[in-house]
Amino acid sequence: MIVFDGHNDVLTELVRAGGRAAAGGFLSGLPGQLDLPRARAGGFGGGFFALWARSEGATDFSTLGPEYDLPLPEPVPEAQAWEMIRAQADTLVALEEAGAVRICTSTAQIARARDEGLLGAILHLEGAEGIGPDFYELEELYALGLRSLGPVWSRPNAFGHGVPFRYPSGPDIGPGLTERGRALIARCEELRILIDLSHLNLAGFREVAALSKRPLVATHSNAHARVPHARNLTDEQLRIMAESGGLAGVNFESTFLRPDGRPDDDIPAAWLLAQFDHLLDRLGEEGVAIGSDYDGCTPPAWLNSVDKLPALIAAMERHGYPAARIERICWGNWMRVLAETWGESA
């Protein structure tokens, strides 16, 4: 069973390690959660490779109480964000030149990459801080292969407001899209760039739902009914997504999986499968996929790197999922929603 994944942050880690100069480490092995040898060992066929403008500083999770609202970092200035985003995009190009991945802009290209033993990579932007008001940078990234975009990470920016890392909490926090944010959504619609709802707050989610004619997608988000974290999707949001033919990729982050919202990797398979069950019930067989967040999360200990994905497949089988459902979750559902979003003919 080959897995196509809705989110990883390996490009952020590679740029921190040297960017293009560190690309060889991806081929030989890295200390994080995702590299080429472990991808091949785990049946990882590719996914969304995120570009993200990282803020300096780290959160001290050891100070969290049973309820928490983590302070968000300051916004990254536009020029600095663009420099980081472009360095990550160049690193992905280096991985393609090294024969590890293929940057894909169609499901046919993803299928060919799979057949040739390459990782199919979707260029994805997580937070649009580096894009100026004339959208020149968006057009440049599109020419490089960008086909998926989340207008915000959790911190606010010129395009809208995200949800903080708050537990317990719902996503109805703050205002929605700005005027520039609405213009960005309109341009993405014209270009058929997938719009990722994962970090948007409820007001922004509702605005995208009203503006978009495509399936509504959260590339790496879980069910709020199972874990009441602000980053998880409420049943109201899932209903709106289902009506659009949308999809959610299940995130492996511990604070989105544990009922107590703790950053603790002691997570039985039952808690992860409960997320799949709830999302399948609300979104249907064609609306659930995987959005691991590898290299950007604390996953369950038994699933803590990409080579452990067969353990997830085995857990699904023990849980009673038929083979056809597992294949849709692992691969087919992403191909469906990408084909619809990108306007591919049947």
Score class of each variant (00 low, 15 high):
residue 237 Q to P: 03
residue 220 H to R: 03
residue 73 P to A: 14
residue 259 P to W: 05
residue 52 W to V: 11
residue 100 A to S: 15
residue 73 P to V: 09
residue 248 A to E: 02
residue 346 A to I: 11
residue 146 L to C: 13
residue 264 D to Y: 13
residue 277 D to V: 13
residue 32 G to K: 05
residue 138 L to E: 01
residue 141 L to D: 00
residue 307 D to C: 08
residue 257 L to R: 09
residue 223 A to P: 11
residue 245 G to D: 06
residue 155 R to S: 14
residue 39 A to H: 04
residue 287 G to F: 07
residue 135 F to L: 14
residue 219 T to F: 02
residue 229 H to F: 02
residue 309 L to W: 04
residue 162 G to T: 00
residue 291 G to P: 00
residue 331 W to Y: 12
residue 207 E to F: 15
residue 52 W to H: 11
residue 204 G to D: 02
residue 92 L to R: 00
residue 194 L to R: 00
residue 211 L to H: 05
residue 81 A to Y: 01
residue 95 L to D: 03
residue 136 Y to D: 15
residue 172 D to H: 10
residue 234 T to P: 06
residue 189 E to I: 02
residue 119 L to D: 08
residue 168 P to S: 10
residue 39 A to W: 01
residue 272 L to E: 01
residue 225 A to L: 05
residue 11 L to W: 03
residue 345 S to D: 10
residue 158 A to F: 03
residue 226 R to M: 09
residue 152 V to C: 11
residue 131 I to E: 06
residue 140 E to D: 13
residue 82 W to I: 10
residue 121 A to W: 09
residue 188 C to M: 12
residue 142 Y to S: 13
residue 42 G to T: 03
residue 299 P to G: 12
residue 50 A to V: 15
residue 303 L to R: 01
residue 86 R to C: 13
residue 226 R to T: 10
residue 145 G to E: 03
residue 128 A to S: 09
residue 185 I to L: 04
residue 166 R to P: 08
residue 275 Q to M: 12
residue 13 E to C: 09
residue 222 N to E: 10
